[in-house]
Amino acid sequence: MPNGWPAPAYNFTNNPLTEEGILLGQTLFYDPILSRDSTISCASCHLQATGFAHVDHDLSHGIDNRIGTRNAASIMNLAWSKTFFWDGSINHLDVLPLAPIEHKDEMDLPFSEAVKKIRRDNKYRPLYANAFGTIGISGERTLKALSQYMLTLVSANAKYDAVMAKKDSFTIVEQKGYLLFKQHCSSCHTEPLFTNGNFENNGLPIDTTLNDMGRMRVSTLETDRLKFKVPTLRNIQFTYPYMHDGRFATLTEVLKHYNTGIYNSNTLSDKLKTPMQLSDNQRVEIVAFLKTLTDTEFLLNKKYGFIGK
């Protein structure tokens, strides 16, 4: 647990992490067995080296080359999230894998069928027994193991963290960017997780080819129209493209959006109603600061990666 972070939202007493449980979860995460035709694994859309997001695709790419309706989210620091997905439609990490596994554009397999496929694969019998102490492959164990692995994906070792721990220091440009960030961004992208976990409308005009209403789809409240969950900005340098629909390819475009592209509507956050009036230099400074959130140890750590057969 990183120093100075708030208490996690995930209740570990119901699913204590063990080395064997994590190993099982990691094996499942990289195994296309969880998809209908055994072609797509969780890792197909969530690649470690890019913060477990799907780069180069604005919308996610799944089975039979079908295109989903949202940009694949990055996966990190999940123990601190109360809700998941851009609209918070998933309320607990342990039930999350049901969504991609059963989604017809993603892995397209009823979860009970996925469990049957796992039962038929001999390699899993000992992995489950080691992870849970007794022989048996069940849906519940499958979900718990996936959570265990994903909960180990903690990114807290960026340059920013070293600076906060007084083990490193920002360059002048980064320092200026940090101050501007605290002024304009941190009310939503709150340190140290770089998200306050809330749903906000950050002024993106609606993409009429998708008509994604965000949180409103879940809550049905008009006041939630076009609100999306504030995403973390850790490792943001590598989790492009950006926003729920992947509409911006670069951080420069994102900063341009916040500076001059804010689209006013009823639910626009008050925090964005006054134009930021950032100069070209200031926008560059903020981007420089955002790059200090890159945690190369996390992105390249072999222990999170694919486990060979």
Partner: peptide, 11 residues
């Protein structure tokens, strides 16, 4: 959640 009485796409 495996009894067919749980929504997978939205908890």
């Amino acid at each position: 959640p495996m009894l067919g009485m749980y929504w997978s796409w939205q908890s």
